[in-house]
């Protein structure tokens, strides 16, 4: 990500003058002999870098806005994929199972507000809720950012991590291959997918979708409750119920994942847009303040010089 690198470089350039400014303010008394007034060079440099940062954040906001438009329509279309599954199999976040797998979805890139921390927080809470003496909860992580956060305190529980999802535009084939890989590599009774559901450009709801394994679906259906209606469906063809349920839950997982990945990508772009918007505004405010200081200092030094000249001239006359 070239932009982030540029931004970092600018940031470094920005911190340097701040230190230089401090030291120059502290060492005013020890200014070299012959120096007439405080140099405005440092403030000028700083104004330049703030201006550059503002340009970059503005550009990043534009990029995020155009990416958001592309991904938003696909996200809204993909919502139709999981709704029939929820109608049929229900969404049981409170189901009590032995092996839970928390699938945390985050972004690969930063500078997008708090959406990654939110999904990590929710994942940790889910892990705490679902761990007990004979229960275990593992993590499957999508994206670099959640990996970096979860590695710190629960690296023993990480089972899989997947990155570089968004190199090509997101599509169903990719997400289904990914879902397939997750299914093959983890043992689970319930998969809990944590993502940020896109509500509007400034609003994201942290969301948990639960996908149960076929055995758990059958168990829940037999014990009645929310899945009790499942028995009233007729099954066509020669397949048994457990085969159908296995196919269904696999397909449900890949559809829910597709929607979750898209929703999270959409939230990421939205969050980046608003983050970049506020940082451009902050840079503007900072620039205004710096310009004011700069002009004031400049004027003061001009005034001082004028007074010196005039008083010198009047001394000669008098």
């Amino acid at each position: 990500m070239a932009m982030a690198a540029v931004l970092r470089r600018e940031g470094r350039r920005l911190t340097q003058p701040i230190n230089a400014l401090h030291s120059s303010l502290n060492s005013q008394d020890q200014a070299p002999h012959g120096a007439r007034s405080i140099s405005t060079q440092i403030v000028r440099n700083r104004m330049k870098s703030v201006k550059n940062i503002q340009k970059i954040t503005k550009a990043m906001k534009m990029v995020a806005a155009s990416k958001l438009r592309a991904v938003q329509s696909r996200t809204e279309n993909s919502r139709g994929l999981w709704q029939p599954f929820t109608a049929l199999l229900g969404d049981n976040p409170s189901v009590d199972v032995k092996k839970s797998v928390v699938v945390t979805i985050s972004s690969d890139k930063g500078l997008c507000g708090g959406i990654n921390s939110t999904s990590v927080k929710i994942s940790r809470a889910l892990q705490k809720l679902n761990s007990g003496p004979d229960k275990e909860t593992k993590y499957v992580i999508l994206g670099e950012k959640a990996k970096a956060q979860l590695v710190r305190d629960s690296k023993k529980d990480i089972e899989l991590s997947l990155t570089e999802l968004q190199k090509n535009p997101l599509n169903y084939t990719q997400v289904s291959v990914l879902a397939d890989d997750i299914l093959k590599n983890v043992e689970y009774d319930a998969l809990r997918i944590v993502f940020n559901k896109f509500q509007s450009v400034v609003q994201f709801l942290p969301t948990v979708s639960t996908v149960l394994s076929p055995e758990v679906i059958e168990r829940e259906a037999e014990s009645g409750g929310q899945l009790g209606e499942l028995d009233s469906y007729e099954i066509e063809g020669g397949e048994t119920k457990s085969e159908i349920l296995q196919n269904l839950s696999e397909f449900q997982f890949s559809c829910v994942m597709y929607n979750a990945v898209l929703e999270n990508a959409c939230s990421e772009q939205g969050a980046r847009m608003s983050a970049m918007d506020s940082s451009s505004r902050n840079a503007g405010e900072m620039l205004d303040r710096l310009t004011l200081t700069y002009n004031r200092t400049r004027q003061a030094s001009i005034t001082t010089e004028l007074i010196e000249i005039i008083s010198g001239a009047s001394a000669l006359e008098g």
Partner: peptide
């Protein structure tokens, strides 16, 4: 051309 697969998977 739309359906391109690309991701990296690491087991822990």
């Amino acid at each position: 051309s739309r359906e391109k697969v690309h991701f990296a998977l690491a087991k822990w």
